[in-house]
């Protein structure tokens, strides 16, 4: 897989990795959540996964860094085959940043330490270098002044931005976002989205599960609509969000874009 180097404004250039999923299947007992999904993300590309809850989009995202183990299919991330039983999963995960819906910041560490612990323990960077990288990334998400705060002293939006800085501090080549704004108060959503928008501009490969259609339209190179464990429709944001062809996509977008729309059972 080819890696593309993009230059970016202030921070180090982003080395971007691609993702390739083939015939991915995942079941919980008799419940098949992913029914054979194939998806390619080119280095530097931003792909938004949309779809109703329970459509399998979060499971798909979690399969990419093996937080969920797929039953069948192959996953390639950068130079790694994640589904190879002999893969060094920890080495692969260093290249894959993950941002969770619930932030999952480490509550016993302050914002700076949240961003340094994996640098020192996993990448074996000296503390001073780790601190510098962490501070630069906290600046990057606009929170340089809150480095000493603990997670419970930060708002949801600030916590999520620290979580993004934590992932970026590992110099990932791919970022996974699992509904990063779904647990946020409406007034803090914008800050998180603007951080993500900048990241996309810098050339980071991003796979984003989201309900933010505005963000998808503006930032995504490609939008993938999933329902019932399959990819129903994919294309550019203009195609999928602007002019969907499948009825399930149309139905979903109608509900998401028009909250006052009420389904009346016939």
């Amino acid at each position: 897989m080819n890696d593309v180097v993009h230059s970016s404004g202030t921070s180090a250039p982003v080395r971007a990795a691609g993702v390739s999923l083939k015939d991915l299947r995942k079941s919980y007992g008799s419940n098949e959540v992913l029914k054979g999904i194939s998806l390619d993300v080119a280095p530097g590309e931003v792909v938004c996964l949309i779809g109703p809850s329970g459509s399998g989009k979060s499971t798909l995202l979690r399969c990419v860094n093996l937080l969920e183990q797929p039953n069948e299919g192959t996953i390639h991330v950068g130079g790694f085959e994640a589904t190879d039983p002999d893969v060094d999963i920890d080495r692969m995960r260093r290249k894959v940043g993950m941002v969770f819906q619930q932030f999952n910041l480490f509550p016993h560490l302050n914002a700076l330490q949240n961003c340094t612990i994996a640098q020192t323990k996993v990448l074996k960077r000296p503390q001073s270098q780790a601190d510098n990288v962490a501070r630069a990334n906290l600046e990057r998400v606009g929170l340089g002044h809150l480095a000493d705060r603990f997670p419970d002293q930060l708002s949801g939006g600030q916590q999520q931005r620290v979580a993004i800085a934590r992932a970026l501090s590992m110099d990932p080549e791919l970022m996974l976002f699992d509904e990063p704004t779904s647990a946020l108060d409406p007034e803090t959503v914008g800050d998180v989205l603007s951080v993500m928008r900048n990241l996309a501009k810098e050339g980071m490969t991003m796979l984003v599960v989201t309900h933010e259609m505005g963000f998808a339209r503006e930032v995504a190179d490609r939008v993938v609509f999933m329902d019932g464990g399959v990819v129903v429709e994919e294309g550019t944001a203009e195609q999928v969000v602007g002019a969907p062809t499948q009825s399930r996509t149309k139905e979903f977008l109608k509900r998401v874009l028009d909250p006052t729309h009420i389904e009346i059972a016939s």
Binding site: N65, G97, P107, A118, A167
Partner: peptide, 29 residues
């Protein structure tokens, strides 16, 4: 919370390191 272990593993920490640096300190508290 399970998310703590997941976040630690996602940063490339092996299981034992995630336990030692992230989960066990919180459990002791």
């Amino acid at each position: 919370p399970k998310g703590q272990l997941e976040a630690a593993r996602s940063l490339g920490m092996p299981q034992w390191r995630a336990m030692v640096s992230i989960v066990i300190p919180q459990a002791f508290r």
